[in-house]
């Protein structure tokens, strides 16, 4: 008996929904922690790795933008030629710089501040997370804030894996403070036509 297209559609639809059902059930906190206890620890490492990668990128962007604004302020004029390097880094800003320098300045200050805020919040969050791990995380109960490992052995292994990040934290924090000061200075001096 050959399957007609309606039957195939029905089978595919049901299979798709069952797949979502199965996947969702596996991700339920209670079941997930029971079935994959090791993933709990991995998820902390993954999270920290991801956040640090994000911080690195955001700090890089912030530094570039602060340099860009500093260059603009130092040369003090909207009539500077468009540069291909800057166009690659900030296509929108470099395009509008000649047309609307005031708007260019305002937009870039806001974007830089937003960037700074994002990094600051991530660093604060990680600071709390590291403190939790330092004080010897006891369990991986579902209501735990960020997932933290169950056993002392797992906790010490986690600490070892996270150690480089803990060492990196003050460096990023110091970089952020420096860039914030630079940004404050730029904003205080403002854009002068």
């Amino acid at each position: 008996m050959s399957l007609n297209s309606v039957t195939i559609k029905k089978i595919l639809l049901t299979a798709g929904l069952l797949l979502v059902l199965g996947r969702g059930a596996l991700h339920l906190p209670e079941l997930h922690n029971y079935l994959f206890p090791a993933e709990c620890m991995e998820s902390v490492v993954k999270l920290v790795t991801k956040e640090f990668a994000g911080i690195k990128v955001d700090l890089g962007t912030l530094r570039q933008r602060v340099d860009y604004l500093e260059w603009f302020q130092t040369h003090n004029g909207p009539d500077l030629e468009v540069s291909a390097t800057r166009l690659r880094a900030f296509p929108f800003s470099e395009t509008i710089r000649l047309l609307a320098p005031g708007y260019f300045w305002q937009v870039n200050i806001i974007l830089a501040r937003k960037n700074q805020l994002r990094v600051e919040r991530k660093l604060r969050y990680l600071e709390g997370l590291f403190k939790n791990i330092d004080t010897n995380a006891p369990d991986c109960r579902p209501q735990a804030g960020p997932a933290v490992p169950a056993t002392t052995a797992a906790a010490s292994s986690l600490r070892k894996e996270i150690q480089p990040f803990i060492a990196q934290w003050p460096i990023y924090s110091a970089q952020l403070i420096g860039l914030t000061k630079q940004l404050d200075r730029l904003e205080n001096n403002g854009y002068k036509q």
Binding site: V20, R23, G24, A25, P29, Y125, P142, Q143, G145
Partner: peptide, 27 residues
């Protein structure tokens, strides 16, 4: 699950820092 699982498959992760597994941002 029908909201979040397909998003996870497509790597569209939309969760603020402070979320944990007992919130609506997780399945």
């Amino acid at each position: 699950w029908l909201y979040l699982v397909p998003m996870d498959w497509l790597q569209i992760i939309n969760r603020p820092n402070h979320t944990n597994r007992q919130m609506l941002t997780y399945p």
